[in-house]
Design a protein around this nucleic acid. Sequence first.
DNA 1: ATATGTTTATTCTACA
DNA 2: TGTAGAATAAACATAT
Length: 417
Amino acid sequence: MLSAVKMEGHEHSDWSAYYGEPECYTSAGNMTQHTALGMNSMSSYMSMPGMTSTSNMTGSPMNMSYVNTGVNHSMAGMSPGSGAMHGMGAGMACMSATLNPNMSPISSQSPSMNALTSYSNMSVMSPMYGQSNIRSRDPKTYRRSYTHAKPPYSYISLITMALQQSTTKMLTLNELYQWIQDLFPFYRQNQQRWQNSIRHSLSFNDCFLKVPRSPDKPGKGSFWTLHPDSGNMFENGCYLRRQKRFRCEKDVGRETGRKTSEGGPNSSPESCNGNESPHHTLSVKDVKRPVSAPKPRQQVMSPAEHAPTPVPQTHHLPSQHHSVLVHEAHLKPEHHYSFNHPFSINNLMSSEQQQHHHKMDLKTYEQMMQYHGYGSPMTGALSMGSMSTKTGLDVASTPTDTSYYQGVYSRPIMNSS
DNA sequence: ATATGTTTATTCTACA
DNA sequence: TGTAGAATAAACATAT
């Protein structure tokens, strides 16, 4: 529903041009009656008129032949019949699988993609978007224009989606880039511009945390993940503009939103792990940069620098803070479910489905712990990062042309005739 | 050299 | 209209 995805001023011209008159959105807002809020309501689009029926949706994601001549990274990683699909709403599973760049069975639960999918459907398949001036457009130019329209998501929400949908809940910068442009053709242009913005967003916003690579997994850049306390940043349903930026409280008082890293002696991991209370007071930023340093650059802690105790095995230990943080954020089985994010599985799956998901998560978690077999929370966290490659679940390594608009291509634009 | 990451500054926009 | 979130540009540093 469009009350869920408010079309704000950003690039409004783009969207109004492609989607028709504002009243379309207004009518979309009426959809609220169908559902609760947030992404749930967006999910309702899966069964909206204009969508194929559930039974049809269960067919095969492959029917959605995506005729994009661009990237198409194949659906190789996809597992159409994966068990992960079974618990999901059929239509959801289908679309999700179709769009998810990370087509592993596990990640096919992709909550974020459900959101995206829903939006996509809403925009294109829902009859209300086919009304008014769109109908009069030349279908060819309209289609082309549409696919290159700027998505109504802020960079922050795009990053959040990408991170949420990834199996390990953390991605490298390049994987983020890839995810975004795979999904949104719009971002296949002007890369320098938006990628700079992405980098800026990652650094600037407290809701994103940097997780250094383990030494045994060399590569460019760190992993990025969501702050466990970032919670539902888009609970107002607007993916262009949060009502309030997520900031770590400590730093809010100290400075205006600047990320600082690696706290002094006070920055105990526990105080920032997001599990003690919904409103812990220690900034995660302290994990990232020294408070004292006026303007430290590039303060990703080196393992040697920060590991108070020898790092078990070959996994690197960026810092205790980080370790706990990331551990809490990504390895605790319950983490995903305390994460009330609109893209989170919470909002998109039934309790039964969540149970299924939960089991899988536990299993994954256990496997990882078994794999790396040591007690340090850090190690597990890092294994998450490296797991992506170990288990072949690496998002960017198996890019698929899972364009956000994918489904659109294979079917006629609803009501546009 | 290029990618990645940090920071500052400016501008635009939505909203109270 | 003021404020705050977001987009953009750019300078600079560091890592690969």
